[in-house]
């Protein structure tokens, strides 16, 4: 665990978070997340990895206020204007009935900005994510990767203190995914250049390689109930490009995290006597 940093440079602080669900089929309560403590500093890129069902998606929804925790407390830094967080959802999360520009400016319009102004403020972000010229297209006219660029632009558009990304690249093919990872880092730096302060990112994935490549810190979670197993600092130099994936340091990080998750999977397999799925 990280030593408790001074609160003024924290972007997010979670204490003793517990989340229980009622399974509709079996009518049993199960614990999705248990006694989770997590601090994220401002400007940090933090990724949570873990096997499916470890409650990582649940956690971002808690941070975003889409769900409320059974126990515990989540604090986020409030900003003077606009939303303090914004979510990049999993695949096909654009509104299919809105053009790209209307999708990207959606958060601003919700916050009461006039449509015209919202469009003006959305344009630079559309260009930043590489969708210049596509602003008047409908989502179905764009490829999966381009849709996720728009999805990202929509979240950046409200200028959030924390950017929450819930497996945004899960539905993309392997190549597009690699491109998008590099693009995400470029955009992250680009937003920093434009907006001044560096964005705090909380990124959810089940891909170890993606986690290591993107992050300053990787949080490894255990399966049901979801607990933090390890908090690993990734000391790879930035700016990073895809070549970094071939360095021995990178492979070492990957190996370390893989061991942690594999132990989980093995435990689960022996427990249920089944496959690792």
């Amino acid at each position: 665990m990280t030593s408790a940093p001074a609160t003024q440079d924290l972007a997010l602080s979670a204490r003793g978070v517990r989340m229980e669900y009622l399974d509709r089929g079996t009518r049993e309560r199960f614990v999705a997340i248990d006694s989770l403590d997590l601090d994220i500093k401002q400007g940090e890129f933090v990724t949570i990895v873990g096997p499916s069902g470890c409650g990582k998606s649940t956690f971002v929804k808690l941070v975003n206020g889409l769900l409320s925790a059974t126990e515990g407390e989540i604090l986020v830094r409030s900003v003077a204007k606009g939303k303090s967080d914004a979510m990049v959802f999993q695949d096909s999360a654009l509104f299919p009935w809105y053009k790209i520009i209307d999708n990207v400016s959606y958060g601003l319009v919700c916050a009461g900005v006039s449509k015209k102004q919202a469009h003006e403020r959305a344009m630079p972000l559309i260009k930043l994510v590489g969708l210049g010229g596509f602003e008047n297209k409908y989502p179905y006219q764009l490829s999966g990767g381009m849709q996720q660029r728009a999805n990202l632009a929509r979240a950046l558009c409200v200028d959030p203190a924390i950017l929450l990304m819930d497996e945004p690249f899960a539905a993309l093919d392997a190549q597009t995914r690699e491109v998008m990872q590099a693009e995400l880092l470029r955009i992250w730096r680009g937003a920093e250049a434009e907006g001044g302060a560096r964005k705090t990112v909380l990124f959810i994935t089940h891909q170890i390689e993606e986690a290591v490549f993107l992050s300053d810190r990787v949080i490894v979670m255990s399966a049901r109930p979801g607990r933090i197993m390890e908090d690993i600092r990734i000391d790879l130099p930035r700016p990073r490009d895809l070549h970094v994936k071939r360095t021995p340091e990178f492979q070492e990080y990957q190996e370390q995290i893989w061991q942690l998750i594999a132990s989980q999977l093995k435990a689960a397999a022996s427990q249920f006597g089944g496959s690792t799925e």
Binding site: T7, L10, S13, Q42, L62, V63, N64, G65, L66, L67, S68, E73, I74, L75, V76, R77, S78, V79, A80, S84, A161, A197
Partner: peptide, 13 residues
């Protein structure tokens, strides 16, 4: 971040 911001608790709908 500008001074004067503070931590607030997340509440959901």
């Amino acid at each position: 971040m500008t001074a004067g911001t503070q931590m607030i608790a997340v509440t959901s709908n």
